[in-house]
Design a binder for these strands. Sequence first.
DNA 1: CGCTGTTTGCTAACGGTGTTCACTTAAGCG
DNA 2: CGCTTAAGTGAACACCGTTAGCAAACAGCG
Lengths: 242, 242
Amino acid sequence: MREATLTEIKSIARRHLVEHGVAGVSLRAIAREMGMTAPGLYRYVPGIDALLVAITADMFDELADTVAAADASAPAEDTELRLHIALRALRAWAITHPAEFSVMFGPSSRLDLEADITPALEAGRRFASTFFSLCDRLIREKDIPLPADEEIGPELTAELRSFADTVGLSAHAMPTGAALVLTRCWIRIYGVVCMEVFQHLGFVVTDMEPFFESELQDLMTGLGVRYIPIEHMGRPVTDAPG
Amino acid sequence: MREATLTEIKSIARRHLVEHGVAGVSLRAIAREMGMTAPGLYRYVPGIDALLVAITADMFDELADTVAAADASAPAEDTELRLHIALRALRAWAITHPAEFSVMFGPSSRLDLEADITPALEAGRRFASTFFSLCDRLIREKDIPLPADEEIGPELTAELRSFADTVGLSAHAMPTGAALVLTRCWIRIYGVVCMEVFQHLGFVVTDMEPFFESELQDLMTGLGVRYIPIEHMGRPVTDAPG
DNA sequence: CGCTGTTTGCTAACGGTGTTCACTTAAGCG
DNA sequence: CGCTTAAGTGAACACCGTTAGCAAACAGCG
């Protein structure tokens, strides 16, 4: 079966990624391990760049599934708890899959600049939508203090509206202030997780979890949402089923 | 002169980095351009990894110089303005040097895991100290609202104290609460700049500057410092002299 | 059955990479 | 002058991505 071969290729590529870093992913090594030669792989994959894009898309899907599974493990009505769980699941996946996270969220250093990365972009969009719906829900339920439209500034407003439009949310569904606090929160989560995975404070800090939790707490209280410490959460779900 | 040859090697490597990405830096290409052969470079550099580490260290020094020069262009007493200028200089350098920023602040994907990256780490420390002294000055002058020691939590306190110690600041020079707000601010700046340079919102946002400014404003007001918009700043210094 | 067309994988080859080793050349110096 | 040391070279090894041409297997069909 053709499908199975492609799956095997991607699975071996993925393993080489986590074991030897993105630089250690090579068509020749994959072919060697499969008992065939490198040119044969070109029947399944148009090149190394496309293969990396493909597994990146797969990893976005996997991360989205992981976060969704964690989210689903909480009572559907408890939006606040679900947000805590989803964000912690994101961090947990990131630090247990640093190689994957690096190619997904780091600079696309290996891909050719003219490579077609749309599949990975699509999958990234699907991943983001998980958090969009959670935040949308939160804003709809709770009375989150949102900045008024007048105090946002024209350039920022334009960017936020184009952002919301691309995501597919009208000004009615998502006010500009909501888009602003959403991106602000995402920037902070992104920052603290990147910092941990890229080991940017690695030589001076041993465990970044307290920083993540501190950021989470500051974020939640800033949103008028109660912060739920880890201990009061029950066993967190850290991986997708299957 | 031996020193000059090494400088030329690093300068060509740097140009290849910005023109073709980190994957486009190769000893053979550098040697070709210098009119010699690749093994000859081994008289000056122990290998490609060490060369990348060396130019990374240089780039940290350059960034530190750029930020310091921008900082020095403001009145020494106006700490608030200096902080604005320094942070904007950081962003300006980052977005005008995306390839450099990626190897400095992104995942170290190309370096061998057992490579000796201490020179780059040292230079990164020197870069960070620029901001440490500015923040130290700010905390000393203004009455920044700092979280009390009791409300920080034992794990976080331990990390923060070890952090301050490594940087060389005692509990007297830098209270735990100060270290916390400092790292929190750094996380947010790091997050928004990484997001811009790595083009993480690139398909949905055209200009990240409003987001950076919004983050800067929120950050400053949270610190009890007045936010100074770009227009009220005079011409910003965006690069080092020479 | 035999004849086609397609799929699959191969070998060979080209040009690129990092790195090591043995060697020559040149410079400096007592 | 002779000796030592540094600088650079060429050949070689083991990798890499990619292309071109070819052979075998397989499917469908008359």
